[in-house]
Design a protein around this nucleic acid. Structure first.
Length: 431
RNA sequence: GACCCCAUCGUCUAGCCUGGUCCAGGACAAGAGCUUUUCAAGCUCUCGACACGGGUUCAAAUCCCGUUGGGGUCACCA
């Protein structure tokens, strides 16, 4: 039975790289009908914070990576100590006191040899362990070091495949020596290429958001982020770009993962997000938008016309780039008066259109049926009577109603605004 | 610096393992156009890469060696 693990350290948020590692582990477990295990590596008492544990768990849940088991290293110190004692007794480790510290550390005598690692992605990698100095197993404060706790846990938890970032390649020979010394069977290794920032260096806050939760706040859909992360270092081979994770379970093959590090490209994530946004269920999208509208005071929690809101969401849905665009673009439908963008006004509202606006409001109010088709017909007949092109009146009306040059079709806007609000807004520009 | 990893359009990649079908395909971005009531979407087109140098071979993006470049690791952090 395949057992993989994702082992984040709660010393910070779950970032993009961690999310991708979690994704590939999760995918592998689900594809092989194995177990996906979460191990919180909180051995660093000073830097580990419970709020980071919460943040990481929330992010993983949001991304859709459900775990089968969860462990905390901070609760397993006695296990690590037991195995360190064992190595001590077997003469494979020794105690040593550092001059600047109280207590003694337990240190592993690194055997000098050539060692070969078989990597699922990179084939064979050879190391010369004579280049590695003796490794601390248990620190002077009795807490285990990363490499030691990692090996003991991976063995105790029966991890069959260690899928992790490239940055762990040089830890691998150290860990393999430990497996051997402890008499544990070796898991299979797969080292994933790193995700880089646009500057070619490590993904850092300087070059954009790094935390998974940031993308959630920014209005990206979990499915879109999963899809994007999947495409970083892996491709289905048939030129397809849009693959949801449930389908990816069937297609994903760890041995096909690229060896090259990939650059995180916000533009492509944006495109994928837009593709998902167009197809996401409008009801679900509405659920995501409601809290934002409540926060902006555009609607009252538990007291709004949901059907009307869903129609509005449908209206804007195909043009959204991120979920959060809705509150910005549809604000005029919730505000008493639209916020007029000065640049838009400068462009379309400098000419006096009193007569045209007046005639339009009169025609609108005279409509027997107030639906999108009638509104359009009403508008078209007016411009035809006036002998002008539709666009010469469309743009000014749009800016007067919405305050913006962008947005859905004008007749839809008028329909959802209603005749009263529409006329009221137009009247402000009638002298 | 030592050790390790990597190297196809600006970016993500297909092709590489099993040399010829590749004067290298797709997507994002960029540019142009269509549509047109704006924006978004959509459609059409354009720009654009096998890092370099040696081999091996009838034939190399594909195999080998070297160079260069980029990245990672060298903690009583994880």
């Amino acid at each position: 039975m395949v057992r993989v693990r994702f082992a984040p350290s709660p010393t910070g948020n779950l970032h993009i790289g961690g999310g991708r590692t979690a994704l590939f582990n999760w995918l592998y477990a689900r594809a092989k009908e194995g177990k996906f295990i979460l191990r919180i590596e909180d051995t660093d008492q000073l830097r580990s914070k419970p709020e980071f544990v919460d943040e990481i768990l929330n992010s993983l849940e949001w991304l859709g990576f459900n775990w089968d088991e969860i462990y905390y290293q901070s609760k397993r110190f006695d296990i690590y100590n037991k195995y360190a004692e064992k190595l001590l007794q077997e003469g494979k480790a020794y105690r040593e006191k550092a001059p600047d510290k109280d207590g003694e550390a337990i240190i592993f005598k690194v055997p000098q040899k050539k060692i070969k690692m078989q990597d699922l992605i990179r084939k064979e990698i050879e190391f010369d362990t004579s280049l590695i100095k003796d490794q601390v197993l248990i620190k002077s404060d009795k807490t285990p070091t990363y490499n030691f706790a990692c090996v003991v846990d991976d063995a105790q938890m029966n991890i069959t495949h260690v899928i992790r970032g490239d940055d762990h390649i040089s830890n691998t020979p150290k860990q393999m020596l430990l497996y051997e010394a402890l008499g544990f069977p070796l898991p299979k290794f797969a080292h994933l290429p790193l995700i880089m920032g646009i500057d070619g260096g490590r993904l850092s806050k300087r070059t954009g958001a790094t935390a998974i939760s940031d993308y959630r706040k920014l209005g990206y859909l979990a499915g879109a982020l999963d899809n994007y992360l999947l495409l970083l270092s892996w491709a289905p081979g048939d030129n397809r770009e849009l693959i949801d994770i449930n389908e990816a379970i069937k297609l994903f093959d760890i041995t096909q993962v690229n060896k090259t590090s990939a650059t995180f490209d916000l533009k492509k994530l944006g495109w994928i997000n837009n593709q998902y946004l167009k197809n996401v269920d409008s009801e679900k999208l509405t659920d995501l938008i409601v809290p934002q509208l409540v926060e902006k005071n555009y609607i009252q929690k538990d007291n709004f016309d949901r059907n009307y809101l869903v129609s509005l969401v449908k209206l804007f849905q195909p043009r959204l780039s991120v979920v959060n665009d809705f509150v910005d673009w549809a604000d005029f439908l919730f505000l008493e008066e639209p916020k007029i963008d000065p640049i838009a006004a400068e462009k379309h509202l400098t000419k006096d259109l009193s007569s045209e606006f007046k005639q339009f409001t009169e025609k609108l109010l005279a409509l027997k049926v107030f639906d999108i088709a009638s509104i359009e017909e009403c508008f078209r007949s007016l411009v035809s009577d006036l002998g002008i092109e539709a666009k010469t009146l469309v743009h000014p009306v749009r800016v007067a109603l919405t305050g913006k040059t962008i947005g859905p079709g004008l007749f839809e806007v008028i329909f959802y605004l209603g005749s009263v609000r529409t006329c009221k807004r137009l009247e402000r520009f009638i002298k």
